[in-house]
């Protein structure tokens, strides 16, 4: 096992933990934080591969992912605030209007 494999495995562990957070938590804010964790896990893999292949593109990509994540957080939190205003709740299970 080399360092890159280790870091990539670490990245996948973090990713799965984030995914479980998204799937199992009910608070919109926590789900959102879990999404950030998943993004971060992906970033970690990028950086690991960038080091492995001695190439800067991976790092540049991470830079872009971070920017997009920042934009996403701004909009996502605005959505949560808006939903909270009408529903008085941050529980995503309360938003089940699409139930068939």
């Amino acid at each position: 096992m080399d360092a890159t494999s280790f870091v990539v495995f670490l990245s996948s562990v973090l990713f799965v933990i984030g995914a479980l957070g998204v799937l199992l938590r009910r608070n919109a804010l926590l789900i959102f934080m879990s999404v950030e964790l998943m993004l971060n896990a992906a970033n970690l893999a990028f950086v690991a591969f960038a080091q492995r292949w001695a190439h800067l593109t991976g790092q540049v990509f991470v830079f872009f992912v971070m920017t997009v994540a920042a934009a996403e957080v701004a909009v996502g939190l605005a959505l949560i605030v808006t939903i909270f205003r009408t529903k008085r709740s941050t529980n995503v299970d309360d938003l089940a209007q699409l139930r068939g």
Partner: peptide, 14 residues
């Protein structure tokens, strides 16, 4: 990673 993991890291750092 275990079965198809790559070789050691690149030698020179960028």
């Amino acid at each position: 990673l275990l079965a198809r993991g790559g070789e050691a890291a690149a030698t020179q750092a960028v």
